[in-house]
């Protein structure tokens, strides 16, 4: 539940940032990228859509992503996404807690733009 709420909260933060955060607005103004964050069992998931400055999201698993952050379980997902450590995702990937499907370039991009709202 915590993970699902976190994804919902992240979606709201990204939407607000797309209106108010100058650096974030600049970073996403041309992007057309779909990022899925999901657990491996697909039970908890949310798709984040960046469309030329607009950010939207919808809950649940979707196949039409550019990159997907697939966490082994919700606990690891919560821990990684709320970590203040820059290497949290890298370490999770190394430990088998996270894999990237699709194009990892976009996953890195997503990580970079979400840093702007921290």
């Amino acid at each position: 539940m915590k993970f699902t709420l976190l994804l919902f909260g992240l979606a709201q933060l990204l939407k607000i940032a797309s209106h108010l955060n100058k650096a974030f607005k600049h970073a996403v103004r041309k992007a057309q990228v779909r990022i899925l964050i999901t657990t491996r069992d697909r039970e908890r998931a949310r798709l984040f859509t960046f469309d030329r400055g607009k950010v939207s999201s919808c809950g649940g698993f979707h196949n039409d992503y550019d990159a997907a952050l697939v966490f082994k379980n919700a606990g690891i997902g919560f821990k990684v996404l709320t970590s203040s450590k820059a290497d949290a995702s890298f370490n999770a990937a190394a430990d088998g807690g996270l894999c990237i499907r699709g194009m990892s370039f976009y996953a890195k991009w997503f990580q970079d733009v979400t840093q702007l709202i921290r």
């Binding site: 370490n91 990937a93 190394a94 088998g96 990237i100 499907r101 194009m103 990892s104 996953a107």
Partner: peptide, 14 residues
């Protein structure tokens, strides 16, 4: 090195 290889392989699943 094991960490490194596991990490980048996890990013190349597709």
């Amino acid at each position: 090195i094991e960490t490194v290889k596991n990490a980048y392989q996890a990013m190349l699943v597709t």
